[in-house]
Design a protein around this nucleic acid. Structure first.
Lengths: 212, 212
DNA sequence: TATAAAGCATACCAACTGGTATGTGTGATT
DNA sequence: AATCACACATACCAGTTGGTATGCTTTATA
């Protein structure tokens, strides 16, 4: 059933190749397992087999599976999301033009391999948010940061008179984020980059319309 | 970890109370288990325990767990989605006004209990689409139907001159569906109806802007 | 150089997983 | 009345699950 577990299919490399201590290895292997299988179905046995690390080592660094999951969310996923999708928003000058450009570039940058597994945030959100408060709070915090950065961008745009007055930055920010997440989800099910592009185009059309 | 499995928390009643044969009971219990835990972590033991049905009965009606999952998707989830979110779109006269009204009403109708577990389609999409083609194709078919019905609505609107010419019905339909799914996902993580309302408001603002 | 603690490794465990083999009652058909 | 298929029920199974208890090195510290 699962044909995506092998390492060679996986394209995201670890962020810091430098200090490749055991803990970091476990963390990254766990991240991959979770991204493919979800948290509950992620197997410690598989993680250990792929790293060569033993169970003793794992339970030396993490008290249990849940805490390992939290660590993956905090130290791997949150970091990637921040570096890839939150921080870049802060450096944009022309808010709307920049946002449009960012979405267009994202649509072009994403490859089929990205589409296949989709956003690890969505995976954990759908699976774990309702059944584990620890996961939910962490996920919520990440989304909050994301919403915040988009909100700041839109506020800047409104203050500069670049977009129509009817726009409420926070409201729109939450909606834009939802659209982006939904787009990746739709593309994942359709296994189609075209679906992603359609969504991106629709969203950009929206952004054009709220311009002054 | 899982505090939502109990029957009394679950609010969606079976669709046809009439013929409550064993197969239907299993199907509905499995649907609930899957909605809460996802497919892979759905336990046949739990399903049997809650229905009172035995393992012999289950494996008499379904050859294996995967086929049970397919049946849940085909006979329970797809049906609910069609009746609740696809068919209603066909009966709308004024496309845009109707769509806006539908989104507003949906935002008001959804309760916190709906938000908690979110859309069962999203749950299975994130978990199973990349690892089981049977699930993916079924999910894709449902989304396709949904996209089709929104596309027809927008086409009607454009032919009637109700929306601006720049709008490509299919493109916008896919984007709108993505936004709606993303909205439910966001509300699920935030456990907040307010987030859902914000997304709905943002989307409606968009629909207002593409009007002629 | 003695001591302690960190960083593992091995072996084992009870609980649970989906799945199967076999038996049994029961209603319809011949 | 005999046959037979349908609709279960019971018991059992090998594999996997997360977790633990007990060891053994290596490294830092005193």
């Amino acid at each position: 059933m699962n044909n995506l577990t092998d390492n060679d299919v996986y394209w995201w490399r670890p962020l810091d190749d430098a200090k490749s201590d055991t803990r970091a290895e476990i963390l990254f292997a766990a991240y991959k397992e979770i991204h493919v299988n979800g948290f509950q179905s992620a197997s410690l046995r598989h993680i250990l087999a792929r790293t060569g690390v033993t169970k003793g080592a794992l339970y030396h660094h993490f008290p249990n599976k849940t805490e390992l999951g939290y660590a993956v969310l905090d130290e791997v996923i949150a970091r990637r999301i921040y570096l890839g999708f939150i921080q870049p928003l802060e450096d944009i000058d022309d808010p709307i033009e920049g946002l449009i450009d960012l979405i267009r570039r994202a649509g072009e940058t994403f490859s089929m391999t990205d589409i296949e597994l989709g956003c690890p945030l969505s995976v954990l959100a759908q699976e774990m948010a309702p059944i584990d408060e620890g996961f939910r709070l962490r996920l919520n915090a990440i989304y909050d940061e994301w919403h915040g950065s988009i909100t700041r961008l839109l506020t800047r745009a409104r203050d500069a008179g670049l977009i129509i007055d009817e726009v409420e930055p926070r409201t729109l920010a939450v909606m834009i984020a939802a659209t982006l997440e939904g787009s990746l989800s739709a593309a994942k099910v359709a296994q189609s980059l075209d679906v992603l592009h359609q969504c991106g185009h629709g969203l950009n059309q929206f952004l054009q319309l709220i311009r002054n």
